[in-house]
Simulated assay, not measured.
Amino acid sequence: MFSQMFGLPEGIVSVVGSGGKTTLLSTLARELPGPVILCTTTHMFPFPEYPRIGGDDAGQVRDALEHSRVVCLGRPDENDKLTAPAMPFSQLLALAPWVLVEADGSKRLPFKAHAPHEPVIPPESGHTILVVGASGFGTSIAQAVHRPERFCALTDAQPQDPVTPELAALAITREGLSRQVFLNQVESEATWALARRFARALEHSGTQVFAGSLHQGVCRRL
Results as ranks from 00 to 15, higher is better:
96 A>I: 00
217 G>S: 08
37 I>S: 10
62 R>S: 12
209 V>E: 02
146 H>Q: 12
70 V>I: 10
126 G>T: 14
58 A>W: 06
185 Q>S: 12
73 L>K: 05
182 F>N: 08
58 A>G: 14
29 A>K: 08
169 A>L: 03
97 P>C: 05
37 I>P: 02
132 V>M: 09
45 F>T: 15
30 R>N: 13
37 I>Y: 09
68 S>M: 06
18 S>D: 05
80 D>P: 01
41 T>E: 00
83 T>G: 15
45 F>E: 15
135 S>I: 11
177 L>A: 07
68 S>W: 02
147 R>W: 02
59 G>D: 07
75 R>L: 13
152 C>K: 02
110 P>N: 08
156 D>W: 08
167 L>G: 09
127 H>W: 14
176 G>H: 05
222 L>A: 14
213 S>L: 02
185 Q>A: 14
5 M>P: 04
4 Q>I: 15
151 F>D: 08
86 A>D: 11
50 Y>L: 02
165 P>Y: 09
190 A>E: 10
75 R>I: 15
2 F>M: 09
213 S>Q: 05
64 A>D: 04
106 S>K: 03
85 P>C: 10
120 V>S: 07
160 Q>V: 12
184 N>V: 03
70 V>D: 10
133 G>Y: 00
73 L>P: 00
155 T>N: 06
160 Q>H: 14
73 L>C: 06
96 A>K: 01
30 R>L: 10
51 P>I: 05
83 T>S: 15
169 A>W: 02
13 V>E: 06
148 P>S: 04
84 A>S: 13
40 T>K: 02
93 L>K: 14
191 T>Y: 13
140 S>I: 00
97 P>S: 07
102 E>G: 03
86 A>Q: 14
137 F>Q: 09
172 I>R: 09
43 H>T: 13
30 R>Y: 12
182 F>D: 07
142 A>R: 14
6 F>Y: 05
159 P>V: 04
86 A>N: 11
109 L>E: 06
180 Q>K: 14
88 P>V: 09
92 L>Q: 06
157 A>C: 12
162 P>A: 12
189 E>L: 13
8 L>E: 03
